[in-house]
Amino acid sequence: MTTAFEDPQVQRIFAGFPDHARPGLLQLREMIFQVAARTEGVGKLRETLKWGQPAYLTVEPKSGSTIRLGLPKQGGFALYTHCQTTILSDFQALFPDDFTYEGNRAIHFRPGDRLALDRLALLVKSALTYHLR
Rank of each mutant, 00 (worst) to 15 (best):
H82L: 12
T100N: 15
G75C: 04
N104C: 12
R133G: 15
K50P: 01
L117D: 01
L120S: 11
P23D: 06
R38L: 07
A106V: 12
T129Q: 06
N104Q: 15
T3D: 00
G75F: 02
R38H: 06
A121K: 01
L28M: 09
T2K: 14
G16T: 11
G43S: 09
A21G: 07
A121T: 00
Q84F: 10
S63I: 01
Y101Q: 14
V10S: 03
E40V: 08
R133W: 07
H131Q: 14
D98A: 15
P8M: 00
W51F: 13
L25Q: 05
Q84A: 12
N104D: 14
P54W: 02
G75P: 01
L45F: 01
D113T: 07
G24T: 09
L123A: 11
A55T: 05
K44W: 02
D7C: 04
A36S: 14
P8H: 01
A37H: 07
A78G: 01
L25K: 04
T81E: 04
E102S: 15
T129S: 10
A127F: 00
R119C: 05
M31R: 13
P18T: 09
R68Q: 13
V10T: 08
Q92H: 13
R119A: 02
A93W: 04
P111T: 06
D98G: 14
L49Q: 03
T66M: 15
T48R: 02
G75Y: 02
A93N: 14
E47A: 07
L88Q: 11
F91P: 04
C83G: 09
I32P: 06
I13D: 10
T2V: 13
